[in-house]
Amino acid sequence: MGFDLAFALSSVPTILGAVGTTLCVAFVSCIGAAAIGFFFEMVRRAGGIAGLTVGFVIDFIRSTPVLAWLYFLYFVLPFYGIRLGSMTVGVMGLSLYYSGYLAEVFKAGIDAIPKGQSEAARALSLSRRHAVIYVIAPQMLRNIAAPLGNYFVSILKATPYLAVLAVPEMLGRAFDIASETYRYTEPLVVAGLIFLVLALAISNGVKRLERRLLAVGSR
């Protein structure tokens, strides 16, 4: 048998055709994860019983596999009569799972801002709202930009998990070709290489961004 290069090349267009779906799923999931993660971190920061509960939820999410969450949502939601497309369920699963990690990113991004910054804002009589908008948030965004980019890459690399829910992303397409031709190696290798190139390219972009952010306005 061996590796059939011509067949591998012939599978490229089909698999590459799903790059858009993959990037789209990763992007929407990343935004969802950031939104939930930010909310989690704000509630945790406020403390009290709600804060402790959310802190535990974050720990729980981080202690469980993404695959288990995807199965959970995929099979449990219909049980309660909630019927959603597999793509929607997949995005929900990735958003929920990665929100636990992004909450930590927000926490680190806020904790890294020196205490003197909010004190200076208070000493200048800025209101709490203005201090957050003009002093804290911009610095937090700068602190989280690189880790957020790295988590986008992680989420991208997790999108092939959605193949188990039959979402037509790149791994799903590769399996479609495999089951039609009974040749698994070539389409899987092609899908793997495309993911590797995407992940490396985006990581590289994140590294450059990080260097630029460090160069501008470093203290």
Binding site: A158, L188, G192
Partner: peptide, 23 residues
């Protein structure tokens, strides 16, 4: 390092599971 770290692990698993017997 980057091959093992930056690849999607689920695809790596399938590739090695299906491809190693082929070679």
């Amino acid at each position: 390092i980057e091959f093992w770290r930056s690849s999607a692990v689920i695809i790596l698993l399938f590739v090695f599971y299906y491809a190693l017997p082929v070679v």
